[in-house]
């Protein structure tokens, strides 16, 4: 089955004054897919997502969202989208239920307000004024407002900021159920475990370009997932990448004649892969502010 991608971005560029925020971004998101956009602050994630939501004009390249140029989307187009922005500071002088019922009336085929309130776990706060909720609870209202219109495509810009661990788990369940219903989702997040849990594919943006993209399990290539053996010699950190960590440890013990200090065998998590991608990007582009905790390549 070949259908046109729900979101298609080609050579997307954005310039603010003399600063190039996006310098040619490409990716596609297919129907029913959950796609994560990862990257450090200021990398261009929010600029990208806001161009696709129709909030910002691009300065170059092509973008298509549900077959429409997002710079020209009308009300019919907006009725098919769900948007969860980064949190705002609205006064919120209506209750959670009033807000959801009101927003439901904007859409031709909305979900029931009470169903959505239950889905985000705010049943007990349904009749509370939004301004009296905690930050994490308000964030859940944001998410509820994003899905009330039964969107085909859902944008989630750092949706779980301020959630406690239990709320985050519940949110993940909610996203999985939306995905199971066929909703296409574009997610930005700082939590790599979240991206790993939820998304089918991801792109890492740094310095306004995509430095890696693909299925989560393949991001950064097979080499970046090679286990690392790490230990200390006279207080100095040593490490070695190897596909046979057991053998390396055996050799190490033979060599030292004793148990190595602070021995670890690390299978790189998505976070490790992500950090090494950024490090590589920064190294190639000569930026000085590299992550502080970079792994030092040890010679053997």
């Amino acid at each position: 089955m070949t259908t046109a991608p729900v979101v298609s971005v080609r050579d997307l560029r954005k310039r603010y004054g003399s600063h190039d925020a996006l310098r040619g971004v490409d990716f596609d998101i297919h129907e029913g897919e959950t796609f994560a956009l990862l990257g450090p602050n200021g990398a261009g994630k929010s600029t990208t997502i806001e161009i696709l939501e129709g909030y910002r004009d691009r300065t170059g390249g092509e973008a298509s969202v549900l077959g429409v140029d997002p710079g020209r989307g009308g009300l019919g187009w907006k009725s098919r989208l769900g948007i969860v922005l980064q949190s705002g500071g609205e006064q919120g002088s209506v209750t959670v239920r009033e807000q959801l019922r009101h927003f439901a009336s904007f859409y031709p085929n909305p979900r029931k307000a009470d169903d959505v309130i239950a889905a985000v776990g705010l049943e007990e706060k349904a009749d509370t004024l939004i301004r009296k909720l905690s930050g994490g609870q308000r964030r859940r209202v944001d998410v509820a407002l994003g899905i009330i219109g039964r969107p085909e495509l859902l944008f989630l810009d750092e949706p779980t900021t301020g959630f406690d661990p239990e709320a985050r788990r519940r949110f993940w369940e909610l996203i999985r159920s939306l995905r199971a219903e066929g909703t296409t989702i574009l997610l930005t997040t700082h939590y790599l475990d979240e991206a790993a849990q939820l998304s089918d594919r991801a792109a890492v943006i740094a310095g306004g370009v995509v430095v890696a993209s693909g299925p989560i399990a393949e991001l950064g290539g097979a080499d970046s997932r090679t286990p690392i053996v790490r230990w200390r010699v006279n207080g100095e950190l040593r490490e070695q990448r190897t596909t046979e960590p057991g053998l390396v440890v055996r050799d190490l013990i033979d060599e030292l004649g004793r148990e190595p200090d602070a021995l670890e065998i690390i299978r790189p998590s998505l976070e490790d892969v992500y950090l090494s991608l950024l490090e590589k990007h920064l190294g190639e582009h000569g930026t000085t502010d590299a992550p502080a905790h970079t792994a030092t390549e040890a010679a053997r």
Binding site: K78, L85, G88, Q91, L145
Partner: peptide
């Protein structure tokens, strides 16, 4: 002016409200 700065208008702009 307050609704513009606190994000109310931005949220409405993303919905099919005329």
């Amino acid at each position: 002016a307050l609704e513009r700065s606190d994000g109310t208008l931005k949220r409405l702009a993303g919905t099919p409200l005329p």
